[in-house]
Design a protein around this nucleic acid. Sequence first.
DNA 1: GCCTGATTTCTACCA
DNA 2: ACTGGTAGAAATCAGGCG
Length: 789
Amino acid sequence: MKVSFWLLDLNYEVQNGQPEIWLWGLDENGRRLLIIDRNFQSYFYAVPKEGFTLERVAEQIRKTPQVSSLEVVDRRYFGKKLKAIKVFCKNPDEIPRCAKNLKKLEGVKECFEDDVRYSMRYLIDNGVVPCGWHEIEVQEAAGKTNVRVDEVYIAKSFPRYVEHAVTPPLKTLGFSIICYSPKGMPKPERNPVVVISVATNGGEEKQFVAENGDDEPVLKAFVDYVRLFDPDIIIGYGNNRQDLPYLRRRCEVHGIRLGIDRQGGEPHTSVYGHVSITGRANIDLADYADEFPEVKVKTLENLADYLGVMKLSERTLIEDIDFAEYWENPEKRKLLLKFSMENTRSIMGIADATLDFAMQLSSLVGLPLDHVGTAAVGFRVEWFLIKQAHKIGELVPKRRERPYLPYAGAIVLPPKPGIHDRIAVLDFKAMYPNIMVAYNLSPDTYVPPGEPLPPSGVWEAPEVGHRFRKEPPGFYKEVLTHLIRVRDEIRSKLKDLPPESVEYRVLDARQKAVKIITNASYGYAGWIGARWYIKPVAEAATAWGRSIISNAVKIAERLGITVIYGDTDSLFVKHEPEKIEKLSREIGEKIGLEIKPDKVYTRILFTEAKKRYCGLLQNGKLDIVGLEVVRGDWAPIAKKAQEKILEIVLKEKSPRKAVEYLHQVIREIRDRKIPYRDLVIWKSLTRPLDEYAVRAAHVEAAKLLKREGWEVSIGDKIGYVITAGEGKLYERAKPHVLAGYDEVDTEYYVQKQIIPVASRILEMLGVKREELLPPKAREKRKLTDFFGA
DNA sequence: GCCTGATTTCTACCA
DNA sequence: ACTGGTAGAAATCAGGCG
């Protein structure tokens, strides 16, 4: 019989040396299916050395114990045709060992794709798409009652992908936990999980709370609840790195099982650090936080606030350092429970804004839904490429260590400082991808120095001189052309859809996924960790970029257009529509790339610095780029003050008013009228504490946290304030959760936060340094002198 | 040892 | 752990002075 299914998760099992792929999915009626496929043979490639006949090498390989059969096939490697031996192993787990053995044979030059996991191999070879629909011939399986699905089938054919832009009705469960530790960071070995808050997309909310601090019933109730609800998707925030490992370890302590998967097993950490829950998709929203760069400190509450899921102002906020105090106090405990429930509610809300994208990314790059979030950008691009490589018979290069060699990047023009009126921004859309397509830049089209020119001729990069075959189209060109076309198609479909429709949401998520992969392709090409890394490809792309933007500037100037700034692929010019139209046309003709007006600023302010400006858009909004306002490592009060100053300066054109405002802010800081949280500075830890070469404020603050029993790790944002006293800045930094407002050194905030960000703007406009501080009011000065402030 | 300017370290941004 | 170009603050170094 034939069934169709939407692929949610997959894994493989080896039973008595016989592998089987387990495909977990839903059919169009929302029934949960498990389809077991025993028909797929695992394999890898061996490439013979020159001077050895295929037959002889094949004969050697055939004698290797793990090999079940082999086949001579035509493949390509960096575009060059070659004969490869496809080596089949019955047991996929034996492939790495088998490849290692083969490499020892004298006739084998190299093995390929022995590092592609069996389950990924299955997806790629059969064109099976995670979060996509498929049809398959199956028969009902006998037995198999211990898996939690409606039907178990045995595959009688390979799945066939069917394009269909809807998602089946998935059951989603969100959860968050609170652990209790009287002092310091909770440790599963000693500290209980006192609250688990769950919510489902069926609208149910539930809390499991430990009586007398005993969490065994909590854990059991949670397991029962998950089993009963039987979610397809489990979501949390930090569940990959914290919650699930903690729950798992805590269950171990009690000698119980965290049996929440669909196979009676427990969650386990797997590739790229994701936690796999067999038969379901476990998703950690923290892995998608980078999709929202506007949110600088990526806490659950900040993301929920940004996405409009739950505003900070209506949120119960409790620092983890205070959990113990809230748990111990019966009145405050109620607040802690409320806080925990709000966490889970926020998770459900953020999931709404994220899941469509996650599913589209998963189906585009081909990584299962639970893997794709934890895979870094480079690996997402790479899996997409691996999938494409298979289609054209290109062998996947081995990952190898390489020395880091820097190369020149883009050009940034020095801005004309000051305020300018009516400025248009023109930019080359998707400049690097288009360059790569136009000049056929690809690992397999590169013609190294000394190699003879191909009959089709070559493109030669300016400055650096790297050469690329004009024909045939290279791997990158094919892939990028395809991506660019697909995105255009999606975007034209979107035009005819109501933005609220389900289809619109799905397609919009898809075009975003396509865009991200397209734009990351240049970065991938220049990444030394990339399998398809060839430095000249990246180096040539930037070289052409530089030459294109320089030529565009020349053309603009010849047409009498004033260029005030430019960065990589953009030009900021005086807004003269007719001249711009001409420029655009001429660039199209001479350079072959499209440059388009992106936006027009009514007014724009530049300092002498590159990459920093503030423009006033025609809709009255400020576009702030690079300045402290948009940076996460300045105190919020400084960011707010700078934003306000920019607004006054650009909208009201009144530096005087801005100075008045500045004086007021400074007085409020000195009077401690600014909310404490607006004084907290956040900085990331980029390495372990003991690997810093110099002492820095956020590092010292982190050490204080550690001393209090709180672990800090790479990537954590440390929030600190500067306290009054003697000595270096780093000696006066304290974690914001450990300091009190009374200790804060308000003069630091005035002199080192407010004054610099204000002077950056105001000195540009002729305001003198000494005018920045409020005049000393005699009366007040005397009073403070008297009271010794 | 103290002061000052130059250099290094660090983070986060832009494209 | 996708790239290079860039700003800016603080720590630290190096050298002059005495």
